[in-house]
Design a protein around this nucleic acid. Sequence first.
DNA 1: CACTCTAGCCTGTCTGATATGTTCGTGTTT
DNA 2: AAACACGAACATATCAGACAGGCTAGAGTG
Lengths: 251, 251
Amino acid sequence: MDELQPADRTAVGASVIERLEALIFDRLEPGEILPSEGKLAEALGVSRLTVREANRALEARGLLEIRQGCRPTVAAPNGALVGDFFKIAVRRDPRAVLDLLDVRMALEVHIAALAAKRATTADVADLEMFVEAMRAAVDQPEAFHAADVRFHEKLAAASSNRLLVFLIEALSEPLRESRLRSFAGHQARGRGAEDVIEQHVAILEAVRRRNAKAASAAMRYHLQQTERDLRAMLRGAPLRPQARGRASGET
Amino acid sequence: MDELQPADRTAVGASVIERLEALIFDRLEPGEILPSEGKLAEALGVSRLTVREANRALEARGLLEIRQGCRPTVAAPNGALVGDFFKIAVRRDPRAVLDLLDVRMALEVHIAALAAKRATTADVADLEMFVEAMRAAVDQPEAFHAADVRFHEKLAAASSNRLLVFLIEALSEPLRESRLRSFAGHQARGRGAEDVIEQHVAILEAVRRRNAKAASAAMRYHLQQTERDLRAMLRGAPLRPQARGRASGET
DNA sequence: CACTCTAGCCTGTCTGATATGTTCGTGTTT
DNA sequence: AAACACGAACATATCAGACAGGCTAGAGTG
């Protein structure tokens, strides 16, 4: 009698979402595939439409991946959702970029400390490699920036905390979109690149020595310098409206 | 020729989502309402179903609120999405709770420093009030815990960083679900409550004195103690399976 | 003026049909 | 025999029309 009969024709969707969610968490691993919409509709006693909407909702929550022609596959957790949230916040209020920098400071400083405690020798070797890549790319802003990002991502990974990795990942996207990238390029061109490398070396060496406090301090200094240069550049050339190819055409 | 005509009948949904997104960000404020599904379908030249799915997708991303009978309203940004992400991560791997504690440590330590720099006298007064509430509730675990949470939320607000507020909000939900709440109650019963109050006072006083370093240190100590006690309790009585009313009945 | 109640709007769900993308087995070719 | 091309079966994407149930505001009543 407790089998939920479709007496209420209005809460069916939510019920289907819950049941699919339970199915995904309790019986399936990331990468596995779900039955097709038709099969699920029949099994759950609802229409294909309802299953479809449930699938889309779960996709939006990062639990499923849906492509036309293929059955839905269970998605591995990733920071895309959180990145979306940050992007939305910035889009609603551009000043939120400064808040993003605060968040990054908080996370990276802690990451540096954790990495100093938990990094393996292999991790340290990888970090060193990225610093070398930066040295080799002082004249190539793109490559320099890429190596910079990889260094920070690797450091997050070395903290052995997957959530921190996701969060750093989520932060880098909206920060990059906010013209901080062109800034990084600008930064790399001048002799500032050497300072940036030096700051990364300081972090790396602190991690190698397993000195959490020094790693935190080095990271804090690095981000403070980055933010200071950024603010200086923004004052110098404040938000030049991105010159896209769009001349006119606002539907 | 580049006006997206519905020649492709397969990318219509994504296009509608993008257009609605632009509409929401560029022309509407939180609280305003969108046209009904039917109107939008007609205006965009697609079927009601497509608009409906777009609406649900935007709802899942935290941009809309949809209730039966009412037209969709633009939602204010909130941390629910991020909270969902954390909850999902924990559900996939319960050990992620420890990662959550790391994240909280990172954020709260930074929040304490920012609050020391930015808090107004009114903020400090509010914080003091919550400490008083904790003092008055040493024998009422529920109220004690509530005041504790309010203190931390208020501190985040005093950092003048809305993203940090959302993140703290997002963290508290899954942490509470992870039986940390019963722990807080347990903690409040013993004389540990006095220690906890003392730790909050230390944070409060550091903020009042505008001493960012001291505030950070006090917060770090507080969270370290909390985590230490938590681990001790988990070792003492490891995950007692929640005794619900369910005797038997797994579908 | 306050209260009720209903008509109309809106979302929730179902049915059935067509278009488009994916996969995999089959058959052909080299 | 192996590699490639092709098509049938399957799966999702979208459309159209219909009905059920929730919500709101304005008409009507006391």
